[in-house]
């Protein structure tokens, strides 16, 4: 596995992200996008640092050409199906932190979410909110 392969993977995630952002921007008749916030868990399979590296390559020529990408890391949390405890875990040890059993359910940690988008309004849209039209 070369870093180039990984970057390819993150690049395709970036492209999917930008398509979704463009849809949000268009539906709000925004001029451009100033900030994109993602929430990513370690078990999503996407590496935040590589996504940050791929983002400037992917954003050129899109609504988000000058946008800032903010990635919020989410913790890995599991709920034990034996003792019911909710505890922290690591990516390759999703065991209950209290009783050690492996029958756990993931509460958080595999997210790959577009959390929010900050839009820069077109000037007329600023004066006239979309709701009024």
């Amino acid at each position: 596995m070369s870093s180039r392969d990984l970057a390819m993977h993150e690049l395709s995630v970036c492209q999917a992200l930008l398509e979704q952002v463009a849809t949000v921007a268009k539906s709000h008749r925004a001029q451009s996008v100033s900030r994109i916030v993602l929430r990513i868990g370690p078990l999503s399979g996407v590496e935040p640092q590589l996504l940050q590296a791929a983002f400037p390559l992917a954003r050129g020529g899109t609504f988000a050409a000058t946008a800032e990408l903010v990635i919020e890391d989410l913790p890995i949390r599991v709920k034990c199906e034996q003792c019911g405890a909710e505890t922290d875990a690591t990516a390759n040890r999703l065991l209950c932190g209290r009783c050690g059993d492996w029958h756990t359910r993931l509460l958080s940690g595999d997210e790959l979410l577009l959390a929010s988008v900050e839009l820069l309004e077109a000037e007329e849209a600023c004066a006239t909110p979309v709701a009024a039209t």
Partner: peptide, 21 residues
Amino acid sequence: AHLAHTPNERGESAVSVLSSL
């Protein structure tokens, strides 16, 4: 739509999406 569309003084508005990438 007016709830989704609240520009700040710089003309920016935040839209929460929360859907899978």
